[in-house]
Write a protein that binds this DNA or RNA. Structure first.
Lengths: 350, 350
DNA sequence: TCAGAAAGTTTGATCGTTCAAATTCTTGCA
DNA sequence: TGCAAGAATTTGAACGATCAAACTTTCTGA
């Protein structure tokens, strides 16, 4: 690459015309080499490719976007304030999405919003300005106003997280990727049972909570499927709920001890809760957290790890069917509903 | 706003022509209303503004960028993997930058890179494609190859973090914002001394470490300035160094105890280290961390908080002098070197 | 009152690319 | 050899905005 330095200087970036002139072809052929190499004759293509390298040519993104009416950019809202310890999950997800986007020649544009209404306003701004083609949403809620708006606008989007409204899950317009927390907790619970535990407690969030209820269900099902299952009342006793917070969790566990309920293991809906339990129980009882945050690894807590790279990849894949007009892959698509993807987490033992 | 819905449909977004037609003016006047309202006559302006609202017009970002040769976009690399507990700092910084950028009508584009060389390749790609106007860099190192490259290219950038190479700090081409960790640790140390401590230990990272050495210096200076200072040898004894990690920190503190060194307080270079100390010492000795991560607040550890919103604001301000050709503000600029900004952190007590 | 300056507005050109249609070059086969 | 069909390439136009310069209107002051 013998491209000139000094961007601030007079020398301008080469354009298709420059490349075309050097390679002795027309500008369109240069464009074709870049966008549809297969329709260009081998010899010509090589000549053009050489000229591109020679000049250090790179297509001007905005010009391309203007012409193609595609921004190849995806908007992601940065969540307001890292919500506690678990914040790092979205951070890691963001990282994974960015990497996956890169591989698909997409850009990631960040924005912030103070509340769902404000977020919708941002959607509008970014779509109208043709800044982005679509969105990846996180932290979905019951009857999320954002997804409703996007669907009404016919704007492409995917959510990380199932829609929790009753009918929404079947809605074909809503593409989502999620992690099967139920399976993750069932797995964690089964493992503790196999390790000899009999009375595994569950520390989660108050109902209703889409994510939380699923995780609790996973624990409960695994407990009910144990070789010698406990009765229903006992399971109710072993089931704790408090808001996400280390000290709240500690309180909850202390309450359990105070009530004299026996238990020999705890699976939790989050690492914050697990850390709270750990601070009360120490190493006396095996504890499993959720999200595999840096804190969990720091204090040596096993935790359910979400396959964020896969989530990111799946999210973009679903989105791309719209955005890039790429054909839906026959095989993959036919396996279940192609618009939804439920991935399995894995317990990381320590 | 009576803008039509259905983006996927046939109706296209209105353009300057549509607005011009409705308002009965030329397209350039519409452009002027948007970009230089003061040169348009009041009555005309109102008419155009009304038409803009009426049509729900929004300028096409790519078209504008193509013509103006500015992307109004700033690139930020997402750090590879959240490095331990402290990862949330960059996360919060990113959030602050995004918000600040929004207020300045700038966009934030994310990218990832595997190593500094790869990052430079990304710089090149993004600059050549006119995707971004400049960069905000984090995690600067000694003689950072990235800053050298950017300076050579004459590309606008700011770093969060001082350049640690010997001569670089005076380099006018390098604009940076940083937090005065020395001041932060001095402050923390002084506070512990005022609370009655006499032998405050320091738990930091091995030299050389630009950031770490500064923080240690803050502690040392505060200790030396104490009413009845300890002798130099004692201070050396009270000074611990280990890599950033909870268990490593625990080991280091246990070593201190084993050596029989007395101490009645610890200030740390990070929350990870502080957490490690906490797990050995419990509430027996006051501990101060650094970065005020969620973990610190979760376990009730006081910590030095970096003013990330201010850092973000300052960073964009410095960058904008280049990017947007805005005039340097006379007053602010004259106060010290306008190309560098050193901000003061604050201890959060719990 | 009127020239000249200033303010306000419009027109033509352009940013760098890709689309769509037109053109030229290759093939294969009667 | 000729000629249609296909492959390869080129040309003109357009994407939607702003710049630069030209033009028109309004203001200023002798």
């Amino acid at each position: 690459m013998s491209a000139p330095a000094k961007r601030g200087g007079v020398l301008r970036q080469p354009t298709v015309y420059d490349v075309a002139a050097l390679a002795g072809v027309s500008r369109q052929t240069v464009s074709n080499v870049l966008n549809a190499p297969d329709i260009v004759k081998g010899a010509t293509r090589e000549r053009v490719e050489h000229a591109i390298k020679e000049l250090g040519y790179r297509p001007h993104a905005s010009a391309r976007r203007l012409r193609t009416r595609k921004s190849s950019t995806i908007g992601i809202r940065l969540d307001p304030v890292t919500n506690g310890i678990s914040g790092s999950v979205l951070d890691r997800f963001l990282h994974a999405v960015t990497e996956q986007a890169d591989a698909r020649r997409l850009r990631i544009l960040l924005f912030t919003a103070t509340d769902p209404e404000d977020e919708i306003r941002q959607f509008e701004r970014l779509l109208d300005g043709a800044d982005v083609d679509g969105f990846v949403l996180t932290s979905t809620t019951y009857d999320d106003p954002r997804t409703e708006w996007l669907i009404a606008q016919d704007a492409p989007f995917v959510t990380f997280g199932r829609p929790w409204g009753v009918d929404d899950m079947a809605d074909g317009a809503h593409r989502w990727v999620d992690v099967d927390g139920r399976h993750g907790l069932a797995e964690a619970t089964r493992s503790l049972l196999e390790l000899g535990a009999r009375r595994v407690a569950y520390l989660g969030w108050p109902s209703p909570s889409g994510t939380g209820d699923e995780r609790r269900r996973g624990w409960r099902e695994a407990m009910e499927a144990a070789p010698s299952p406990l009765d229903s009342a006992t399971l109710d006793d072993l089931q704790l709920a408090c808001e996400d917070g280390v000290s709240l969790a500690s309180d909850a566990v202390r309450g359990l001890l105070a009530r004299g309920v026996e238990f020999d293991g705890i699976v939790c809906a989050s690492d914050s809760l697990a850390l709270g339990a750990l601070m009360v129980l120490g190493a006396s009882v095996p504890i499993v957290g959720y999200d595999n945050t840096p804190v969990a690894s720091a204090v040596g807590l096993p935790s359910v790890e979400q396959p964020l790279e896969q989530v990111a990849a799946a999210a973009l894949e679903l989105l791309l069917d719209d955005v890039a007009d790429e054909p839906v892959l026959g095989d993959v698509a036919s396996a279940g509903d192609p618009r939804h993807r439920l991935l399995r987490p894995q317990v990381v033992w320590r």
